[in-house]
């Protein structure tokens, strides 16, 4: 699946729900199904700054590709990071660096989060992008 197809898949899934409560229910399911994150990796250097709840993001590289795993103590946040991982994990540095993450706007996620949580989302995106430029 290409990056564009993965993003479209998320947009399509989101558009199935009219009500924001249903969209949250979808995010909660995503959060619950996120693969377990080892306690030993919940370290301060993996903690994303700017989130009200705690979010840990780990990045592993295979050649030019980046693979992400993550966890959060809040389930909706976990769903959001799961959604980002489903799109961006396994992509090349170039793909991630060049992506504008504008699909977030098309699903209206940012506007529907509280300002503190929207900042958290921006922090998550910046952290993912940050890994793509790290050498």
């Amino acid at each position: 699946m290409t990056l564009e197809e993965a993003k479209q898949g998320v947009v399509d899934n989101f558009s199935m729900y009219d009500e924001w409560l249903d969209k949250y229910e979808y995010l909660i399911e995503l959060g619950k199904n996120l693969e377990p994150f080892p306690e030993s990796k919940k370290t301060d250097d993996r903690l994303i700054k700017g989130c009200q709840s705690r979010v840990w993001l780990d990045c592993r590289t295979e050649g030019d590709k980046l693979f992400f795993t993550a966890d959060s103590d809040a389930i909706i946040t976990k769903g959001i990071i799961s959604l980002l991982i489903s799109i961006y994990s396994g992509r090349t540095r170039k793909e991630i660096a060049e992506d504008d993450f504008s699909f977030i706007e098309s699903i209206g996620l940012k506007e529907n989060l509280s300002p503190t949580r929207a900042n958290g989302l921006v922090s998550m995106i910046n952290t993912i992008k940050g890994y793509s430029t790290e050498r």
Partner: peptide, 21 residues
């Protein structure tokens, strides 16, 4: 087993303004 912020976010979408944190 439930994060206070998740609760506040869902209550918000039900029209209820509460504080979390």
């Amino acid at each position: 087993g439930v994060h206070h912020e998740d609760l506040a976010l869902i209550l918000d979408k039900m029209g209820i303004a509460v504080r979390s944190g």
